[in-house]
């Protein structure tokens, strides 16, 4: 069973470090508002992805697809609502870019971290 440990917090921290600048860059004129939105939305989807989605999916592939789709569209919705005026398309664009980037970096970092940790 997973738990909130140093590894989870590190993963969340790395995710935020990667995703925050992307969202702020794409909403430069209101970066403070969107940075806050990114913090809250990413923390929520990250938690759901790690603790809830594994319980409702039966394979790793479905876990990935369901979880990452939820993260992309959920965060996109949050950014769209937080933007002034509301802008779902730009919110989705920011979310897709941020999530793609953090997931891709995770693919590279994970084996490295694994070998260092062990």
């Amino acid at each position: 069973m997973r738990s909130v440990d140093a590894g989870y917090l590190l993963a969340l921290g790395v995710t935020l470090v990667l995703e925050l600048p992307v969202v702020m860059l794409l909403f430069r004129s209101q970066w403070k508002r969107l940075a806050l939105s990114c913090l809250v939305a990413t923390a929520m989807t990250h938690w759901l992805m790690h603790f809830i989605v594994p319980l409702i999916t039966s394979s790793y592939l479905s876990y990935l697809i369901v979880g990452e789709s939820f993260a992309t569209f959920g965060e996109g919705l949050a950014y769209g609502v937080a933007a002034e005026p509301t802008n779902f398309i730009r919110g989705l664009m920011a979310s897709a870019l941020a999530n793609g980037l953090s997931y891709g970096v995770g693919l590279f970092v994970s084996p490295l971290w694994q070998s260092l940790y062990s």
Partner: peptide
């Protein structure tokens, strides 16, 4: 790799959403 099919799906999803959004912004 067990990672590849899922990773491809995730990256494709995000890439597609990003490109469609970008196109819509330019189109409008």
């Amino acid at each position: 790799s067990v990672v590849t099919p899922g990773a491809m799906s995730v990256l494709s999803l995000n890439g597609l959403v990003f490109l469609i959004s970008l196109l819509m912004i330019y189109w409008r």
